[in-house]
Simulated scan of single mutants.
Amino acid sequence: MMKDGVENRIETAVKAALMTVELLVAAGQPLKSASAASEKLTMQAVRASLAKELGNKSGSVITHTLATTPAVEQAVPSPAPAKRRTKAKQPQTVV
Rank of each mutant, 00 (worst) to 15 (best):
R84G: 00
V94T: 13
R84F: 07
A34P: 00
A37M: 08
P79Q: 01
G28C: 03
P77Q: 06
L66Y: 01
P70M: 08
L66W: 02
L23R: 14
A26L: 04
A13S: 10
S58F: 02
S78T: 10
V61C: 07
V21Q: 00
K89C: 11
T65L: 13
T63K: 12
G55V: 01
A17E: 04
K15R: 15
R85L: 14
K57C: 03
T65Y: 14
P77L: 09
G55A: 04
A88S: 15
L54R: 03
P91C: 08
E39A: 15
H64P: 00
R9N: 12
V61H: 06
L50H: 10
T42I: 02
A88H: 06
T20E: 00
R47S: 08
A48C: 00
A16H: 02
V25W: 01
Q29V: 11
P70C: 07
S60E: 14
L66P: 00
P70Y: 10
E11I: 09
I10E: 11
A34C: 02
V94K: 15
S58C: 06
Q74G: 10
R85E: 04
T12Q: 09
E39H: 15
V6G: 06
Q92S: 15
M2T: 09
K87W: 06
A16L: 04
A80Q: 07
E53F: 07
K15V: 12
L66E: 03
K89A: 14
A17M: 12
M19Y: 05
E7C: 11
V76C: 05
K83A: 04
G5P: 10
P91G: 11
L41I: 13
L31K: 11
L24Y: 00
T68R: 05
A16F: 02
P81H: 00
V46M: 04
A82T: 07
M2R: 11
I10S: 09
G59V: 12
M43N: 09
V6M: 12
V14L: 13
Q29C: 10
V72S: 10
S35N: 04
S49G: 06
A71C: 04
V21L: 03
R47I: 07
E53V: 09
M19G: 03
Q90A: 15
R9K: 05
K89P: 09
Q44T: 09
V25H: 00
R9F: 05
E11H: 11
S78D: 08
A71Y: 05
A34M: 01
K57L: 12
T63V: 10
Q29I: 13
L54D: 02
S60M: 14
M43W: 07
A16S: 09
K52F: 05
A45V: 02
K3Q: 10
A26S: 02
M2H: 12
